[in-house]
Write a protein that binds this DNA or RNA. Sequence first.
DNA 1: AAATATTCGCGAATCGTTTTTTGCTCCGGT
DNA 2: ACCGGAGCAAAAAACGATTCGCGAATATTT
Lengths: 354, 354
Amino acid sequence: MPNASNGDRNPTSGANGRSQRVRIRDVARAAGAAQSTVSNAINGTGNVDPHTRDRILEVAAELGYVPNRNARSLRTDRAGMLGIVLSTRSEAGEVANVSYNLRLAGGASRAAFRRQNALTLLPPVRTPEEAAHLVPDGVILADIELDDPARAAFDVIGVPIVTIESDPGNPHESYWVGADTPTNTRTGLDHLMATGAKTIAYMGTDSTGTWSAQSATAYRAWCEERGVEPIAITVPRTQTVGECAEVLRELLEREPRPDAIFALTEKIAVTVVQQLGDLNLSVPRDIRVLSGSDGDRAAQALPSISAIDLHPEEVGAAAVALLAELIEGLDTERPRIIRATLNARESTTGRVTR
Amino acid sequence: MPNASNGDRNPTSGANGRSQRVRIRDVARAAGAAQSTVSNAINGTGNVDPHTRDRILEVAAELGYVPNRNARSLRTDRAGMLGIVLSTRSEAGEVANVSYNLRLAGGASRAAFRRQNALTLLPPVRTPEEAAHLVPDGVILADIELDDPARAAFDVIGVPIVTIESDPGNPHESYWVGADTPTNTRTGLDHLMATGAKTIAYMGTDSTGTWSAQSATAYRAWCEERGVEPIAITVPRTQTVGECAEVLRELLEREPRPDAIFALTEKIAVTVVQQLGDLNLSVPRDIRVLSGSDGDRAAQALPSISAIDLHPEEVGAAAVALLAELIEGLDTERPRIIRATLNARESTTGRVTR
DNA sequence: AAATATTCGCGAATCGTTTTTTGCTCCGGT
DNA sequence: ACCGGAGCAAAAAACGATTCGCGAATATTT
């Protein structure tokens, strides 16, 4: 009984268990029209007189008619369902870049919902067989890496794909949404320089994804333009605090000692800031730190960490939009680039902004 | 062309665009049986001779038959789709407790997938009208609070509901999965005491959810049993580092000064540890800190923070299982309690465990 | 005014399953 | 010998929408 409100108007509770919502034929009967006309009126298809269309819509609204998705799906061969794979690689299921991914998924979910689509969270799919049972109309692959098994799996069963950032294994594929990483990296580096940095080091990950690769490349290019030697180091994905500390110590022994660090991920940035505090180095006075991705952790660190906000919600929404257009067969603008913004915080400016 | 592999065997590419996978009638023809028999063989329903069943299954496998979900859904009135709402409250879309929620969703996703179901990520749903368009077979409501609009919305349209933690508005409803919060809280408090704490303060949130409420209650009960005065303070959900610092400073001026803090969330715990470092108090020597929920942030903090691991993946998986049984109409054991474990780290033991 | 388009709406077919109904065969009991 | 039931398989009827083809009514052109 706590599952309350089983009143008369409850749309489910058929004796046979089938949901007893209003069907199109009920609307047709009530409006004195044919099913096909009701269908056309609702979907805006075919030729229906504006007057009758309005009448039908009114009746439909009054009756609370909601089309049965399953019937519609069968007829139109569309599931009304998009998939998103947040992480292909992690076996244990932990998803890296937690904050980014959750915001990405949230943005995509809302965008899909607005389009009357469901966004389903797919576990790491590796084979076509796995993918064949749950066939979405299209799929978004986040965090795609070189030779991604998920891409292959969905390609084989013919499911349209949009990736977050370009697929490093298919550089000519244009159906992706992402950031202008080279520009963003430069923006970050410029910001560090503008706050007084002379020697900027780069700490990235060993990911084979495009974001990571392009960031590192942009960093080197930026250094080359200025005739300075790049100082780029890589932190293994499975970094522990200890490893990171070691890498950092090495970095600080260089001559001249870097006075700024561009940390690709929030996780690296937070660890770096912690370690620097431990080594009695002042942030930002001695060393400035900037994170290549923003989120809770960067914002909440002490000192708070300046970061590039990649606007993952917008990326997710754009991915859904592009995917929908790909499914429709529309030939729209692509790739879609979401402009990032720089959130300057204490780790570079030395005071709380805002 | 990068969307490769449009060979002959590509299952989609019908001239009319309809997916041209093998249908049940193809299997029937190839096996020399009726559609109904194939259906029965595959679903293990009805009476079919074991011999013919095997033959049919063999043929089906050979042809690579995969049932059309849309047709099946129409016939059975099951969408094969479960929904999960991660956060009802946040308007802007930011989900609190990021790490917990993402792990929860991941666990649920895998469990659903194993059952050939899709787990769809639903945006905060507030009205029945919003909920009516995408009707899942059942829905998981995480982070449910008092008078949750999502519960009401899904109740009205008759969608079965399982909540994460019990619904504070429906205390007699038993379809929920969660932790044994009273026990977990005590475990944490006992651990703090075992590591030498005498005066333990509690910092929780202003959430109206069950987890928060039960934690606070358990804390007070624990104090009462020991005849000590509880020191419980609440951090507003929208806490900034500044506010938290202020609250903490007050806390530390009490007489006697607390020598341990039970912080309900990772976020609070991390902030507390940072602030304590800033105030030149040693963790854990002067003050021990324990987080009521575990995740990346607690593990990676400096010093690393001991925390109660609520095993959100298991919670998600159990929620899917319970929801599936609720949908089936099975009367199984409930609620489902997932046992938590304590991860002792530097913030209480003063050394790296493991 | 006749011929020809065009608009509008209806009925029926269809999507690919599952489920119900029907039918056949075989067997044991009276 | 006949009946009843069990076992198996085929045929047919759903499920609820969309879409196709066609005719009737109306508008437009010759």
